[in-house]
Amino acid sequence: MNIYVLMKRTFDTEEKIVIENGRVSDDGVNFIINPYDEFAIEEAIKLKDAHGGEVTVVTVGSEDAEKELRTALAMGCDKAVLISTEDVEDTDQWSTAEILAAYFKDKSFDIILGGNVSNDNGTGQIGPRLAEKLGIPHVSTIVKLEINGNQATIERDAEGDTEIIEASLPLLVTAQQGLNEPRYPSLPGIMKAKKKPLEVLELDDLDLDEDDVEAKTETVEVFLPPKKQAGRILEGDADSQAKELVRLLKSEAKVI
């Protein structure tokens, strides 16, 4: 099987977000593999173990993502590809999907796995956009995947319910929490990762121009959510509490 995984390097979930000059600052921040992409990597390795083949992990972004790619290789992926966008001023989901589509144009693949969303921008667009461009089916937020020959049987999380879907390969799926428990990279895996192939591609290598992939969207303003106010405890008997609550919802919160 030819298995591909889309991976994004994101902020560690424990990092505090700081805004500087209208942008989220990444000064001294710890980066990780986007947690949903980690599920995708684990599932890809399991597929390889069950069906044979090769797992290639692909990322689009800065060259610093090499460490996260090496981590994926240490977990058991076979090859890594880093598509550098360092020359592009601004990218968005459209740009990333465009770049990935150019990369996959001449590749043969059976399945592409990705995370359902990234834990930073959280748009959940890359997978579906790419599938659309490649003209293949996609299933998002999957929690179970079984492949038999050319057929995939998939359970997907439908806002708390489970939907069972059958699809044929080639296919793109995005992983939801619950799909699996990602393994720890083993020490031999870490030592071997250094020697596995990691290819760095420039846009040029994909016959793309910087202008071809400039963002279609514009970030107008970046701001933190307002600080949470302390809660208020209403006093008195139930009747007067209810009255007071209605009054506050009307006059202060202005929601009714």
Binding site: I32, E66, K67, R70, T71, A74, Y184, P185, L187, I190, M191, A193, K194
Partner: peptide
């Protein structure tokens, strides 16, 4: 090194 960082992250999570 990258290997040391990956190992550190792995063993911290394990711990």
């Amino acid at each position: 090194t990258d290997e040391q960082k990956i190992l550190q992250k792995m063993i911290r999570e394990f711990a």
